[in-house]
Amino acid sequence: MSVVVRTVTRLLLPAVVMFGAYVVMHGHLTPGGGFQGGAVIASAVALVVVAFGARRIRRHKETLSVLEDVGALAFVVLAFLGIGGTFFYNSLAGTGGLFGQEVAMGANPGALNTGGMLPLMNWAVGLKVLAGLGSIVLLMGLLGGDDDR
């Protein structure tokens, strides 16, 4: 792609990744969550593939693979942590520790330190979705005629 596209991509990339991380992080408070934020970050991967060509980031295929594994395993492990109650029981909610702050009842904007398991699961699913969609885009970019080697 041309210099214009590459420069704009360089400028835009941190903002896209940061917005995706924000959507994942505030999944238990605002609209969005792991799936949506992961898709936003995967769109950053697509931007890089379009602007710089897939071969430039081919070596990150392994990184994406590891991220996918970590996300999936973290999700299942977090689900098993609540096995004292039920599978997917929210065992961290309201314990006062990490993400365990008591939720104010009624309509309120909410605090980031609430939600128990939900933010952690959002992160796990976010990692998984970003790695999954990112590697799909990367594989398709590697398949296509890549004029920027």
Binding site: H28, P31, F35, F75, A79, N90, V103, L118
Partner: peptide, 24 residues
């Protein structure tokens, strides 16, 4: 029950966690 202000997230990861596991 789920300690979440976002009802959608509560449904997605708490009430219907199995569904999310299947989606993953």
């Amino acid at each position: 029950e789920a300690a979440a202000n976002n009802v959608v997230t509560a449904v997605l990861f708490d009430y219907r966690g199995f569904d999310t596991l299947g989606e993953a």
